[in-house]
Nucleic acid binder design. Structure first.
Lengths: 188, 188
DNA sequence: ATTTAAACTAAGCAATTGCTTAGATATTGC
DNA sequence: GCAATATCTAAGCAATTGCTTAGTTTAAAT
């Protein structure tokens, strides 16, 4: 009884996500989204409500991509600490696009919006961080010598370290990042 | 032969710096700067050229404040590793304003502007990071058992860790940050 | 006191922001 | 074929962006 959409929402959201990932939230305008997603502003607003709506869906898309290309591998591994270390190395590759290091979209967003981030956005972020942390805990528990207190501390340590890696990858060279990762996992 | 300025550039720049620190570069408009600095746009542009000019001076101001409240203490100390650890704890206090964790302005800027940061801004940033790193190296050298290779690696490690602390302080609680710092220095 | 020039106020510039809407177009059920 | 309706294009909205400029005020040198 009506016309068909000429685009697939999941596909255009991936384009949007890439743009937000490269530029950040504020620096990405609806006109830029229009071009990158290949659809008109009318379509953007009718599909996603507003700019924030596009961003929320982009975060979901990012999580899906990260899960597929990064997190599933960690989840499957039974290599404990070494699996997490590999995750750190994998993350650098994951966040690099040709010569540009984009960092982690979640970390970028926390850093950009901080406490003044919208509630909905903040929920997505905390949600994602919690998942990763639980996964770290799961891998740390493979070492049965660690007490739950130690595991908690080390999981916190690793979470902050990962954020450092995200920011640092934008300005430090591979050698510096390698030094960081190697030292991070020395005593775990 | 002419009228006197009704403001002191160093004073109004400190206000601008606080604003950039809280909000980031893009999210800070010239109208906001006008209000915060307490001077008219004409004065802003005649004193600092353009928005970027205000920002560059703000970075310099930040460095001065950091030196005074943070870096000098580290420089004076002869406590080696422990002095650096104390620097990490001091940084958290330094970057907190009432309940808001603003992170490090330098780290915030790298994260926001990344590779597309203006050359002049990038110079200021690299410059500052290099200073801190050299200071870390100086303190690490107080332990004469460390080879220069180890010291290089550990300095890189600490630099990235510090950036992690900056971002993480925006969303993690004190306990998580403490776990991070304590574990960070276990590796040294 | 007069001249001179820098510093002020405040209005205004074009460009861009997020978002909306009027009207044309296409796809469906009948 | 026709009517119904969701989707498209493209123009336009008020508000905000970084920056400028015309005109007034102030203070020092003569």
């Amino acid at each position: 009884m009506a016309r068909k959409k000429e685009y697939i929402e999941e596909e255009v959201i991936e384009k949007a996500m890439e743009l937000f990932w490269r530029n950040g939230y504020e620096a990405t305008s609806v006109r830029m989204l229009e071009k990158e997603m290949g659809i008109n502003q009318f379509s953007i607003y009718s599909s996603f409500g507003n700019k924030k709506g596009v961003f929320i869906k982009s975060l979901t898309c990012y999580k899906g991509k990260a899960k597929l290309e990064l997190i599933n591998k960690l989840q499957k591994s039974s290599d404990g600490i070494n699996a997490i270390k590999q995750y750190f190395y994998d993350f650098i590759k994951f966040s690099r696009e040709s010569r540009l290091n984009k960092g982690c979209l979640i970390t970028n967003t926390v850093n950009e919006l901080g406490e003044k981030a919208d509630q909905e956005i903040m929920t997505e972020i905390v949600n994602f961080a919690t998942n990763v942390k639980h996964l770290f805990i799961e891998k740390l528990e493979l070492n049965d010598k660690k007490t739950s207190q130690i595991i908690k501390e080390q999981a916190n340590y690793l979470m902050v370290s990962l954020q450092g890696l995200s920011v640092a990858s934008k300005m430090f060279d591979q050698e510096q990042l390698d030094d960081f990762i190697e030292n991070t996992f020395k005593n775990l």
